[in-house]
Design a protein around this nucleic acid. Structure first.
Length: 521
RNA sequence: GGCCCCUUCGUCUAGCGGUUAGGACACCGCCCUUUCACGGCGGCAGCACGGGUUCGAGUCCCGUAGGGGUCACCA
């Protein structure tokens, strides 16, 4: 039975790299009928945990990464908040103390820093001389009498090596001598992450610890803790981190300004902002950032596309197949095929993946996805009028992959406004209407022709328009631009004749007339 | 700086001793076309470097270089 866990600290947001780690853990559990556990590493903070946790849980729910045990799910090993498990950790510390694997240390932070600096200056590795280690209770009392407080440190081995069997990297060995006597319990009695993590992983019967590679250097001390406590070791696997676009450093929420210099990343952000500006009021780096999952949810990405993209960031089945549904991911995923090297986040590939998934969506589902955006932008009432689904569906179909994410429907806002509210692209109007009185003349004549088009569908309109142009001895291309601007306000868009069909005979006539009135010299 | 990890087209990757080094995204042409896209066809582009081992190395070994991670009473 495989049991995996993802252990976020409540920071208030879900990092895209974290999602990949979580996904791999989830996949491992799901493919074996095991459990995926969410455990909150809040040993360091007590306040506002719930508020800082909510965005993370929301993110998981939106992505469809369900957890079997954890916050709001409970489970046999509750509580799943480390801040509520202090007693367990303190017992482990007692055990370590009793067995001689840890000791009370009365040194001060300043003293240690001083020693570290000296070691550094002398060019040698700092090794604590255990000067303030209390060998027994008597000595502890003597140290305490001088007014010192104590922490508990691990009494790490100083010779030999620690060999870690890693599910991704294979065998990794580290000299014990390069390790420090890490603190596991603070002066105030609270315990630190490494201790808590090991204790919880064991208590919660975690079989596979799959986490980001920045934890690799921490692993020896965790192995030491586990072994000292008599725990069997979990299977470790350290995933390479997700690197920044066009770079090799770890993707970080804080480096947005730098990423903006990357053309593709910039394009993604601007795309997102274009949508966000229409559906919400405030846009700040804290809440609207492509490194955070919320960004994609807000602008209408498909969770499946994101998961699929992330899956391929560091894992491949055979280098050919790229599209995986959840079921397929679960079926095919394996740690052995996870890459060892970091993979940089590529906004363009993500977008391409999103388009692929979007194009596979059924019409009904797509309409439902897009509707909230139209409503948020004030283009469709809430509740929506029942005939609107036909229009939305038609626009979606005509737009094809121009609607890459749900929020892109707003690019076609002109299809949903009254003629009088139709926004014009100034350049397009100037070029095709204002500077082109001949086109305006012809369009006025074309209005009259509209009534003769029966049925009012793309093919018939096209035939009518083409013969209209022929009658007036011009090429279709010479007039269609003006027609487009007159009916949509835009220079570009999807098929002209489908556009007119969707608009309907009356609205088409209305828009042409209005545009000519507005722009004819 | 110490320790650890990593290194195939611009990017994500396939490759597990013998391949014209394959795919995808991006990019560039051409075709299609009423605009923008889609689509079709074609193209550009890669084994970091140096030594070994071997009949033969992208693949195994050792160095070098480069990149990265980590060195807390943070997680």
């Amino acid at each position: 039975m495989i049991r995996t866990r993802f252990a976020p600290s409540p920071t208030g947001y879900l990092h895209i790299g974290g999602v990949r780690t979580a996904l791999f853990n989830w996949l491992l559990a799901r493919q074996s009928g095991g459990q995926f556990i969410l455990r909150i590493d809040d040993t360091d903070r007590q306040r506002n945990v719930q508020a800082a946790l909510q965005p993370i849980l929301d993110g998981f729910r939106w992505l469809g990464l369900d957890w079997d045990e954890g916050p709001e799910a409970d489970g046999p090993f509750a509580p799943y908040f480390q801040s509520q498990r202090g007693e367990l950790y303190r017992r482990a510390v007692q055990q370590l103390l009793a067995s001689g694997h840890a000791y009370r240390d009365y040194s001060t932070t300043e003293e240690l820093q001083q020693q570290r600096r000296e070691a550094e200056k002398a060019g040698r590795t700092f090794v604590y001389d255990r000067r303030w280690m209390a060998a027994d209770d008597q000595q502890a009392q003597a140290f305490a009498a001088t007014g010192r407080s104590c922490v508990v440190r691990l009494k790490m081995p100083r010779e030999g090596e620690c060999v870690i069997q890693d599910g991704v990297r294979g065998e990794v060995s580290v000299q014990w001598a390069s390790e420090q006597d890490h603190v596991i319990q603070r002066a105030d009695g609270s315990c630190l992450y490494h201790l808590a993590s090991v204790v919880d992983d064991h208590a919660m019967q975690i079989t596979h610890v799959v986490r980001a590679e920045e934890h690799l250097p921490n692993t020896p001390r965790q192995v030491f803790i586990a072994q000292s406590l008599g725990y069997p070791l979990p299977q470790y696997a350290h995933l390479p981190y997700v690197a920044e676009p066009g770079g090799s450093a770890k993707l970080s929420k804080r480096k947005l300004t730098k990423y903006r210099k990357n053309k593709e990343f910039q394009a993604l952000m601007e795309h997102g902002e274009r949508i966000a500006k229409r559906v919400r009021t405030e846009i700040s780096e804290e809440t609207f950032n492509p490194v955070i999952v919320d960004f994609y949810r807000e602008i209408g990405f498909l969770p499946d596309a994101i998961l699929n993209y992330l899956l391929l960031l560091g894992w491949a089945l055979d280098g050919e197949r790229e599209h995986f549904s959840r079921e397929e991911m679960i079926k095919h995923f394996s740690l052995e095929r996870v890459n060892k090297s970091p993979a940089s986040f590529d906004p363009q590939k993500l977008l391409a993946m999103e388009v692929d998934w979007m194009m596979q969506l059924q019409r009904k589902r797509k309409i439902a996805l897009v509707l909230p955006y139209l409503q948020a932008a004030g283009l469709v009432a809430d509740p929506p009028p029942c005939e609107i689904a036909g229009l939305i569906g038609g626009v979606l179909e005509a737009a094809g992959d121009r609607v890459k994410m749900a929020g892109d429907i707003l690019d076609f806002d002109f299809m949903f406004v009254a003629a009088t509210d139709m926004p014009y692209d100034a350049n397009a109007a100037a070029k095709h209407l204002q500077a082109n009185p001949a086109a305006c003349e012809l369009l006025t004549k074309f209005i009259a022709r509209l009534d003769q088009i029966e049925p009012f569908d793309p093919a018939t309109i096209e035939t009518a328009f083409k013969s209209f142009c022929a009658e007036h001895e011009i090429k279709v291309g010479q007039l269609i631009g003006a027609l487009r601007v007159a009916t949509t306000g835009q220079a570009v868009g999807f098929s002209m004749f489908e556009t007119l069909t969707l608009l309907g005979r009356t609205e088409t006539a209305h828009r042409i007339a209005q545009s000519i009135k507005k722009f004819r010299n």
